[in-house]
Amino acid sequence: RNMSYLYLATAILFEICGTTCMKLSEGFTKTLPSILIFVFYGISFVSFTIALKKIDVSVAYAIWAGLGVALISLIGFVGFNEPMPIIRIMFLALIIIGVVGLHLSTSIH
């Protein structure tokens, strides 16, 4: 089961890389980031699929999507100078709290 969470973490990491490359590709006008979108998403989907062998799909997807949103927001703020008002920080914190709660709920059943 621990390996499944390692695969899930890998899926999240590569999904973040793929999404960042979407921004860097400038609408598929830059070749390398455009190619890397597909490479990174391919690795992400393979890793996510392997993770689903041992993790409930509802929990795995919530973790994948929730942490992806939170980390991409941080990358947008730090790397692309996107605004980060306090209300956005508060809602991102709620997403993280929800992800942690879902993870904790898997150990209950």
Rank of each mutant, 00 (worst) to 15 (best):
G98V: 10
I12M: 13
I35N: 03
S107L: 13
Y5N: 06
L13A: 14
T19Y: 03
F40N: 00
Y5I: 04
M84I: 11
W64H: 12
F14E: 11
L52H: 08
A70W: 10
L32W: 13
L24N: 00
G76T: 03
G101T: 05
L13E: 06
H103N: 14
I12D: 08
L32M: 11
L6R: 05
F91M: 15
F48L: 15
I96W: 12
K54Y: 12
K30W: 07
S73Y: 09
F80I: 10
G42K: 03
P83N: 12
S44Q: 11
T20N: 06
T29K: 15
A70F: 12
K54E: 15
E26F: 13
F38D: 00
I63S: 11
G79L: 12
C17P: 00
Y61E: 02
I35R: 01
C21W: 05
L92C: 12
L92F: 08
I89T: 14
E26W: 02
G79D: 10
L36V: 00
S73W: 11
I97R: 09
F80W: 15
S4H: 14
I89P: 05
I16A: 08
V57D: 01
E82V: 05
L94Y: 00
G68P: 09
F80P: 07
I12A: 04
G68S: 11
A70N: 08
I75R: 01
K30P: 05
I96Y: 06
T29V: 01
Y5E: 12
I63P: 08
V46H: 09
I97N: 09
F38I: 09
I43D: 05
S58I: 00
T49M: 10
T106G: 04
G27A: 04
S47V: 08
F14D: 09
F48R: 07
L92S: 12
L32P: 00
D56H: 08
A60S: 11
V100A: 10
I95Y: 09
A70V: 12
I97T: 09
V57P: 01
